[in-house]
Computed example of a mutant assay.
Amino acid sequence: MSAEDIVYLKDSLTRMECTVLPTVQDKWVSLHPSYGLLCWCDDKKLKKQFMHMDGLDFLYSGGLSNDDEETLSAKMSVLMRNLGIPALSKVVTREAMFNGPTESSFKAALLDWALPYAQRFLHSLHPDKYSQLKQSGFDILNRLRVVEVKKLSYRNVIKIAGSESKKQIECSCVLQDHDLYTTQESDSHALFMELSRLFFDGKPELYLANFLHMITTMAELGSTEEQIRLFYLQ
């Protein structure tokens, strides 16, 4: 499909009378706002949490096998995005639920120490993301705040649809917007996994977390700054 075809199709689908999109909830809708939010499912666990929420529908793609679903996810994601039909994981955010903020100076100091190394990682392996970070004046780093709490959990919410999951998931770290909540029991690797979401559109990046954990371990074992520098330059 050409770009013009995509624009024409999207314009057509946003008309209230153009109810040609089938949903899992067994009804036909268009992309008109009056029908609420329409998503395509890329996460079955999240789908179970939001399946019966009002104002939220899932696009029905037929009785597909697991392999077919993976093919649809890989090949159709760009088309869905261009049509304005978001993936479920893109509209779900996590809402931190906690008890008792405490002193967080150690965790905050650890992240302050690790952030320059995170930037070097991005500069070397993800230059596009580093360029975006630099062009923004490192805004997300300047706004980052570490909050240590006694007890922590989160629930998934879809703000645009006013929907929230009843399921609460206990955790040791969770990033919400620019606040990184952590408990005293959280280890550095868990902390770095949450930090990585800040740079990768809310998704954890294992390689970055492993890299930061490794240089932290080296520092704890007495490695010099020069030895750490030689490690990440390899």
Rank of each mutant, 00 (worst) to 15 (best):
Gln176Val: 10
Ile160Leu: 15
Thr182Trp: 05
Asp43Glu: 08
Ala114Gly: 15
Ser65Phe: 06
Tyr117Leu: 15
Tyr117Met: 03
Val147Gly: 06
Lys166Arg: 06
Gln227Tyr: 11
Arg120Tyr: 12
Lys47Val: 01
Ser61Cys: 13
Arg197Cys: 05
Ser186Val: 03
Glu220Met: 14
Leu144Arg: 03
Leu233Met: 02
Val149Gln: 09
Gly137Phe: 05
Ile169Lys: 07
Val174Arg: 09
Ala161Gly: 11
Gln176Cys: 12
Asp112Arg: 00
Ile169Leu: 09
Asn66Gln: 03
Tyr130Ile: 05
Ala114Leu: 13
Ser163Ile: 09
Phe231Gly: 08
Gly162Arg: 07
Ala118Cys: 13
Leu56Gln: 02
Pro22Arg: 10
Gly84Met: 01
Pro33Lys: 05
Thr182Arg: 11
Phe200Gly: 15
Ile6Pro: 03
Ser61Val: 15
Thr14Gln: 04
Glu225Phe: 14
Cys39Glu: 02
Lys47Leu: 08
Gln184Ser: 04
Leu152Ser: 00
Phe106Asp: 06
Tyr232Val: 06
Phe231Trp: 13
Ser153Asp: 12
Asp67Asn: 03
Gly36Ser: 10
Lys203Ala: 11
Thr19Gly: 11
Ile6Gly: 07
Ser165Ala: 01
Glu170Trp: 12
Thr102His: 11
Leu180Thr: 03
Leu152Lys: 02
Leu133Glu: 01
Gln119Thr: 05
Ser131Gly: 02
Ser73Asp: 13
Arg145Thr: 04
Asn66Phe: 08
Arg145Lys: 14
Arg229Tyr: 07
Lys45Tyr: 14
Gln25His: 05
Glu170Thr: 03
Ala3Met: 04
Met51Lys: 07
Asp67Tyr: 01
Val147Ala: 14
Met193Cys: 04
Met80Gly: 00
Tyr35Trp: 10
Phe58Cys: 10
Pro101Gly: 14
Cys173Asn: 00
Asn142Asp: 15
Glu4Pro: 04
Ala219Tyr: 15
Lys45Gln: 07
Glu185Ile: 00
Arg145Cys: 08
Leu191Cys: 14
Asn66Asp: 06
Thr71Gln: 02
Ser124Pro: 08
Ala74Cys: 07
Lys150Thr: 12
Leu110Ile: 02
Leu133Ala: 08
